[in-house]
């Protein structure tokens, strides 16, 4: 099993978790990766931090959406467009504060 997860770093306190949940995507992972693996009967094989690229991608999306603001407002509606930009800005803030990380996680049979 392999894929990409957005989650909070291990050891983040309750206040940080709450702020990550507020600024992050719909459901930010807060469970330690090893525990997450155990819930599906697998073990953690490798974890690669890809937060730097995640930040660059998020920033790229925000910038590109700013560049295409007019047609995107026409496509999505003003409220959805502004909400989308606000979400991206919040996510970028959370990444910069160290509240959100993204990992390539590979799980295997124990």
């Amino acid at each position: 099993m392999a894929g990409y997860l957005i989650h909070t770093p291990e050891g983040l306190g309750a206040a940080g978790q709450a702020r990550a949940a507020e600024l992050g995507p719909a459901a930010v992972g807060t469970t330690p990766l090893s525990d997450l693996a155990a819930t599906v009967g697998l073990s953690l094989v490798t974890r690669q931090d890809v937060t730097e690229l995640y930040h660059a991608t998020c920033e790229g999306i925000y910038s590109a959406r700013t560049l295409h603001e007019a047609p995107l407002r026409a496509e999505e509606g003003d409220e959805a467009y502004e909400d989308g930009q606000e979400r991206k800005a919040g996510m970028l803030e959370a990444i910069r504060e160290g509240l959100l990380v993204r990992s390539l996680v590979v799980l295997g049979k124990p």
Partner: peptide, 10 residues
Amino acid sequence: DAISHADVFC
């Protein structure tokens, strides 16, 4: 044989 996911389990 394999399972993939991307930004789902967040």
